[in-house]
Structure formats: C-alpha cells, structure tokens
Design a protein around this nucleic acid. Structure first.
Length: 487
DNA sequence: TAACCCCTTAATTCCTTCCA
DNA sequence: TGGAAGGAATTAAGGGGTTA
C-alpha cells in the first residue's frame, strides 16, 4: 500500500503531471541534487536550531516509518508529556512528520519550521495537511504555528539563537483549509493511479512555488522553434499575445506586432539575420574610459543559520575576489584572494582588495552584485567606508550597457554573463572548468573546503577549482570590453 | 457649469532578471 | 534562498474636448 508524504500532495497541487512523473519516471528527474537544494543545507540546519529552542525535547528516530509511528504513539502516552521532534502520524495513506509537537493544556501545538523569511501560500497548505492528519489520527490539536527565519536577526555569537525564528499562529488559516485536504489527497491518489502521464501544458506552475525537475521533459513538446517568442525575455503579455495569435517562431512575427520596443526589435532583427547586433555606441562609451582598467568579481557564501558573529541569516559574505588589470600598452595582469580559514573572511577580503584596486581607473563589474556587497561591508565596517566609497565611484556596470546595445540570437533573451560570453569569446568555456562552473557550485566548494573532515588533498583540489572559476569570470569581462570596443 | 469621455503622463505596484 | 534594479503593468491624476 503506497503512502504519500504531505510534500507530494503539495507538489500535486502545483502540477499533477509532476507527481505522476516523480513516481513513475524518476529517471527523468534533472535536479536530483541541484545547487539550490544543496544550499538549503548549508551549515547548521534551521530545524536543528529551532528544536534547540525547546530544551528537553525528544527526537523521533527510527529506520522504518512504522517504528517512528509506534514510538510517537508510545511517547504520547507517557507522563509528563515530552515535546517531540519529527513526531510521525499517518491517516488515509498520508504520512506527516511534525517538526515540533509541543504539549499544552488540553492538547498539542504543532509547529512547522520553514527556512524562508516569510510565510508563503503553500506553507499554509502544508501545515493544513499536517493538522488534518494529526487530528484524524486522534491528536487534539490546539494551535498550528509556523516558525520562519527572522531576517533582521543579527547573530551575537556563543550559539545564542534566541530571536532567529519568528513564530506565527496560523491556526485560523489552516482551519479554513482543513475541509479541502481530503479532496487534495483523493486527487493525488487518483493521479497516481493513472496509467499514462497526464498532459499539462507548461506555465507558471513549472517554477512556482518550486522549480520543477521535469521542465525540459514537458517543454520538449512545445519549444520546437529555434527562436520561440519566449526569447523576447520578461515580456509576459507580449509573449502571451503572440502565442495566442499562433506564433511559435519569433522570426515569423510581423514587425508591426512588436511596436516601438527597441529591445524587442533588436532581438527580432538578430533572430531573423542569425547574426549578433552591436550598437557602436557601446564601444564609443567604453573607449572614452581611462587606464588602468580593473575587472572585478566576487564569490560569496550565505548561511541560513549565521555562523559568524555580527552576521544575519542569508547575508552574502564575500570570501573570494578576482581582479584583472589592463594597462594602456596592452598589458594584462591578474591578482586574486581566497580565504579558506573557516573564519569570517570579510575583513581580510577588504584589506586585500583595497590596495589591489589602486587609486584611479574604472572598475568593471557585471551586475550590481559587487557594488551591493561593498555597500554592506561599508555598513558593517565603518572604518573602511571611505575607501569603499572611492571604489564604488569608479565602478562601471557592463550589464546595462550590454542590455542596451548588444544581442546575439544564441542568448535566447538572457543577458547573463554565462549567456553572453559564448557569443563573444567561445574559447572561454565555463563547461571546461572542473568542479566549479557557477556561483552556486563555488559556494558548495567553499563549504566543503572549510569543513573539518575535508582532507588536505581535497582542499587543494577545491581551492584550485574556485580560483579558476573566479578568474574566468573576470577574464570574461576583459573580453567583453575588448569585443564592444571592436578590438 | 457640470458631467462625461478620451488621452497622456505620473506614480505605484508587481514581476523578472541578475548575482552569489 | 535573499536583495537590488529595471522594466512592464496597473492605477491615479490631470488636461482638453464635447455635450447637455
């Protein structure tokens, strides 16, 4: 007899096809271990900290779920009643594990712990399923609470995490949903019993509230054209309008339907010609800038549960920088920094970066990410604020310049540096890098490097991969400026 | 003069795209 | 997962014209 967890029922609420594929075609799952999912486990788990706020609680640990249910039942009958973590219940083949089950007068409060910073709609559905199963299993539920991360929390050190969570009473919200839960579970089981895959067209539900691992599988049927209308980028209504009118290939859309939108027209022309389009204004602007020129990129780490004193949940803390420096005579040099001590890298990061950037000359970046990190460091370390301000004044963001003046049909509506680079410098290939190929993987590599159990040999390997990745990012910026200037 | 309509502009909200 | 920025979409406000 097959059981369903509450997360599978929530998944079914998002898309029936997804649940069917997960159960019947697990081989098609493209994100069995994505960096995003891995990041959720960065450092101490939020749930562990939440449990530590209830001293004397008892964790339900058992290899088999049936044993977990039996142990839960046993502990519920004891006196005095203990607080339970991962208390396990089942009803109508739906299985739930309650993060925190707290005895109160006349019953229990159930607490669902989430690592996001605010309550999402699906959290309420999730908690409603939890409450329904508990109630049907005979548990007198008094209140349903949701514990989520308080993003204003600043870690004072010494394992003091009081205030990291905000506890919200969502009983009214879950009570309003309780009647619907049996219908949701019935529908999910009905889908599972379907012999063939339910056909549901791709849409918003492919990304919200979670990215679906079967997006490519489903999109396969709908994205036959080389340049679909979606290549226009985030123009929801325009794309919907074109789709409604039957256009599947951007090249076949009449120019008049794109109006006066300069960006759309540039994308449309490039797709029709099959060639890149570069407005000379980009080069003119860049040629007016002085030397020496600096090209800068940061890598950062973020913890849901802060580990360094003075930091907040999800705060981006820079641990690595790469900088290329170009002289007027064509010389290019490279400097870099990577802190793998496991201690807060913020100060050494700043103290090495400031002298590396000299006193004059533009500092090229891609997106405002580096700017924002420096602003945050200036607030945290006022001693360096003047130096940081001087760096910020020299920064030149290449992303808006690229957006306004360049497009290649292979970019498919994205101006991310990972989309732009292959069109201007195919010899700089991220996929040829070993181990670290994007910012998420750099974070994973960093976490593994600072982990106590990582061997020296492995640390060296990871360190090299991180340095190579960050260096390629700034090299890409050098190439981008050269390309725009028409070298 | 008040009421209504249409159009343009400004302000606000919402959504997407970047970065890690 | 957050946060900032930018752009699209939506809403509000204002101006001008017409009509009763």
């Amino acid at each position: 007899m097959q059981h369903l967890s509450k997360s599978r029922i929530i998944e079914h609420r998002q898309c029936a096809r997804r649940l069917w594929l997960r159960v019947h075609r697990p081989d098609l799952d493209t994100q069995a271990s994505t960096s995003a999912q891995s990041r959720m486990q960065a450092g101490t788990h939020a749930g562990e900290v939440a449990c530590s706020l209830f001293p004397g609680g008892r964790m339900i640990e058992a290899e088999k779920l049936s044993d977990a249910i039996a142990l839960t039942t046993d502990l519920l009958n004891r006196k005095p009643k203990p607080t339970l973590f991962e208390a396990t219940f089942s009803h109508s083949r739906v299985l739930v594990r309650v993060d925190i089950l707290q005895p109160v007068r006349g019953g229990y409060d159930i607490v669902e712990v989430k690592s996001s910073t605010e309550i999402q709609g699906y959290h309420l559905e999730d908690a409603a399923i939890q409450a329904w199963v508990c109630q049907q299993a005979g548990l007198p539920v008094k209140r349903t609470q949701l514990a989520h991360i308080n993003k204003t929390f600043v870690y004072p050190g010494k394992q003091q995490y009081d205030g990291l969570f905000t506890f919200a009473d969502i009983t009214k919200d879950t009570d309003a949903l309780l009647k619907q839960v049996p219908h949701w579970t019935k529908a999910a089981f009905a889908t599972l019993n379907e012999k063939s895959e339910p056909i549901i067209e791709p849409g918003k539900h492919c990304k919200e509230p979670f990215e679906c691992p079967y997006v490519e599988h489903c999109a396969h049927e709908y994205k036959a054209a080389k340049y679909p209308p979606e290549d226009l980028g985030n123009q929801g209504n325009t794309i919907n309008r074109l789709r409604e009118q039957g256009y599947t290939d951007l090249r076949k859309v009449p120019k008049a339907l794109l109006g006066n939108n300069k960006k759309h027209l540039r994308i449309w022309r490039a797709c029709r010609s099959g060639k890149a389009e570069l407005d000379p204004a980009a080069g003119e602007h860049l040629r007016s800038l002085a030397y020496p020129r600096y090209f800068l990129d940061f890598e950062t780490i973020q913890f849901i549960v802060p580990t360094w004193k003075g930091t907040r949940p999800y705060q981006q803390i820079p641990f690595q920088w790469s900088c290329h420096k170009a002289g007027k005579n064509g010389t290019v040099s490279h400097t870099e920094f990577l802190d793998i001590s496991g201690k807060d890298p913020s100060k050494p990061f700043l103290e090495t970066l400031t002298p590396a950037l000299g006193k004059r000359g533009p500092i090229f970046v891609y997106s405002h990410f580096e700017r924002d990190r420096l602003k945050a460091l200036a607030i945290r370390f006022p001693k360096y604020a003047t130096d940081i301000e001087a760096i910020l004044e020299r920064m030149v963001d290449l992303l808006p310049l690229s957006r306004a003046h360049y497009y290649h049909p292979a970019m498919h509506g994205s101006w991310s540096i990972k989309a732009v680079l292959p069109t201007i410098a195919p010899e700089l290939d991220y996929s040829a890098l070993e181990g670290v190929q994007d910012g998420g993987e750099a974070q994973q590599a960093y976490l593994e490097t600072i982990h106590r159990q990582t061997t020296g040999e492995r640390k060296t390997e990871l360190q090299q991969a991180m340095l190579a990745y960050c260096k390629l990012d700034t090299e890409a910026l050098v190439k981008l400026v050269e390309y725009f200037e028409g070298h």
